[in-house]
Each structure stands twice: as C-alpha cells, then as structure tokens.
C-alpha cells in the first residue's frame, strides 16, 4: 500500500540524472525487454511509478537497481526518451550513499574492482577475483573454472601496473563524494 504520495524523490532523481521520470506513461516496454527482469523485485516500469509516488525507501532497497546490467535496451526503446538505465545508475548511487544495498555481493564486486584500479591503475583479473572472493566469502565458487583458466594461461600472476599510480589515486580522491 502506498500511503504518502510526494514528488520529492522525482526531484532528487532528476537533479542527479537529468531524467524526467514523470514523462513515463506506463507502456511497460522497458520491463518487457529487460533481460534481467525475471530476477528483479520491482520491474523497471514499476521503478518509474514508484519514483513518481515518492517511494524512496522501497526504491533504494530494491534489488532491481543492482541487477540492472546497464545493457541500455530499455533506454534505447523508451518512447518517452527516458534514459531508464541512467535512472537506475542514479538510484544505485543513492542506495550506496544511504547504505540500503539490497544486493551486497554485487556492490562488493564493484568495490573490489575499483579498489584494484585504485591500487594498480589497471585491472588484474586474478587480483580482482581474489579480492572479491575474500570480501564476499564465496571462496569456493568457480573453483573448477579457475583451474581451467590457470591451465589456459589466463591467470596472470604478475600484475601489470600504471607507473604514475599517484595520478590514478588522485582521481579517486577527487571524485569520492561519500
């Protein structure tokens, strides 16, 4: 049940993403074409409506914003020119800031990924996987696959790094708002 309807959330989303969610007329085309919709708790068109209803907490706590794969199929086909994927980016950012992440493993993966860049300036997949596994506790997933990759020479033991790593860390520092 939706008890209090307000437009605060919509304003926030527009400020953050420039997208006018209120243009949505609920054709549901975004949901119909979303490859990950089957795993989402709120469908993309429902996200649009919930933003209009000002359902901030539900939006920031939903799995949808994390499951969104940023494939941009919805944005490309939306008849109202709403960049839905961008709205998802905005909500995901808000969700992180508020600490309401519904899919911690996905968030952890992204954190591991960015940590890698922060340290080395480049992404080293074995370092990334190692760090993610340590963080997520999913140590034994994909063990077989890892073995295959090792044999195939896909696991690089010596990470390649950027020489001027300082400049990379500076970027992280300068863009870190949280």
């Amino acid at each position: 049940m939706i008890h209090t309807v307000n437009r605060l959330m919509e304003t926030k989303v527009e400020e953050r993403t420039g997208e006018r969610v209120r243009h949505c007329y609920q054709c549901k085309k975004c949901s119909a074409g979303c490859p990950v919709a089957f795993a989402m708790d709120l469908l993309p068109h429902e996200i649009m409506k919930m933003v209009q209803y000002g359902q901030e907490e539900r939006l920031l706590k939903c799995s949808t914003v994390w499951l969104c794969a940023s494939c941009e199929t919805c944005s490309t086909r939306c008849p109202n020119e709403i960049d839905i994927a961008r709205v998802m980016d905005g909500l995901r950012g808000m969700s992180l800031e508020e600490g309401l992440v519904a899919e911690p493993e996905i968030a952890m993966f992204h954190r591991s990924f960015l940590n890698g860049i922060k340290l080395a300036g480049r992404t080293n997949e074995s370092v990334l996987i190692g760090q993610y596994k340590a963080l997520s506790g999913r140590l034994f997933d994909d063990l077989g696959l890892g073995a295959v990759m090792f044999i195939k020479g896909k696991v690089k033991v010596i990470p390649r790094v950027v020489k001027d790593r300082k400049s990379v860390r500076r970027i992280f520092k300068e863009t870190d708002k949280g």
Partner: peptide
C-alpha cells in the same frame, strides 16, 4: 603511454564522475 583502466561498468554503476574521469585520464 602509461594508460590506466577505464573503470568499466563498476565505475559507471557506482560513481558517475569517476566513470568519466578514469577514461578522462
């Protein structure tokens, strides 16, 4: 010379300015 990572989807999905600044370098 001395290229760095573009940030890929992880930067894009979590930090908008970072996702522009990493390739910006």
């Amino acid at each position: 010379p001395d290229w760095s990572c573009c940030g890929a989807s992880s930067a894009h999905m979590t930090n908008d300015v970072l996702s522009v600044a990493l390739p910006g370098r």
